[in-house]
């Protein structure tokens, strides 16, 4: 499960930031078989009007939809020297990408 920290709203209420889980039909692979840790995966966008999430990975673009979990998840962080966990965030929705990705073809004006 990939958790994503969504861009905060500028409401200024001091509420914990909203996170979302990203669920994909498929796998993320690296070309050079390097571990995925700390790697740049792609860009996540949302359309302005209806908030459809769009994920661009490599030359693929994926259109998904937002769903709310039945039970929300809490993102907790263990404090280093005490047995305490700090709730970082509550994840209430997931971004589901289950459709076949569409390729992005780069085109040069020269090539055309």
């Amino acid at each position: 499960m990939i958790l994503v920290k969504l861009i905060e709203d500028d409401d200024g209420l001091g509420s914990p930031p909203e996170w979302a889980a990203v669920e994909m039909q498929g796998e993320l692979e690296t070309r050079r078989h390097t571990p995925l840790e700390r790697q740049y995966v792609g860009d996540l966008f949302a359309t302005i009007h209806d908030g459809v999430p769009i994920l661009i990975i490599g030359h693929h673009i994926l259109y998904g939809k937002a769903q709310t979990f039945e039970k929300p998840f809490a993102v907790m962080k263990k404090k280093p020297d005490a047995d305490e966990y700090v709730v970082e965030a509550i994840v209430t929705k997931k971004l589901l990408f289950k459709n076949r990705p569409k390729p992005i073809i780069a085109c040069n004006s020269d090539d055309l």
Binding site: E27, E29, Y40, G58, H60, I104, A106
Partner: peptide, 25 residues
């Protein structure tokens, strides 16, 4: 130079290390 720049640009898109492997099921 123009052609070269384009090539680089294309490479940026295509040659990202992570790629999405869609599994249809």
């Amino acid at each position: 130079p123009a052609g070269h720049k384009h090539k680089e640009f294309r490479d940026e898109i295509v040659k990202s290390d992570v790629w999405f492997h869609f599994k249809e099921g």
